[in-house]
Amino acid sequence: MQNQSLPQLDDLYKEIILEHYRKPHGREPLEKIDYQAEGMNPLCGDEVKLCLQLQDEQIIKVHLEGHGCSISVASGSMLAQMLEGKTVTEAQEITKHLKDIMHDRTNGKVVDIGDLEALEGVKKFPVRIKCALLPWTTFEEALVGHNHVEVS
């Protein structure tokens, strides 16, 4: 455990993450809410409410509110940017892939995840992985109709 090499802060706080944190996407309210869920990380108090507006199988708009650290806010912002326009199936695949990246189980599979790649550096800071995944697990819970989820 001792004397591991110092993980570089720049891996965690990539410029693109800080940009998302400063100006997060998905803050405008929706005209109609089809699915929603609230997620929280009971260890640190981060909270997110995520609402989805769908047309048929397509995610038209994502709305997020709540408060959290830079990683969870940026991750939520990327989620909104990334999933708008995607079908539910596509969105679920992206979610699964991001979780696989975080838990080192992609088995070499490559999926185009755009800005989300920036979150890969979070892996070097294991205690922060749950921050990055909070909006995504909340998204999954919204789809299955759960109203409240805790990430541990």
Binding site: L12, Y13, G45, S70
Partner: peptide, 26 residues
């Protein structure tokens, strides 16, 4: 602007251990 978690992660790089969160007092 700077969330306590981010502060704690950054100062941990200098070996400084502090607590960030709700301190079991929500």
């Amino acid at each position: 602007v700077v969330h306590p978690h981010d502060i704690a992660t950054i100062i941990d790089q200098d070996g400084v251990a502090i607590r960030a969160g709700h301190h079991c007092a929500q």
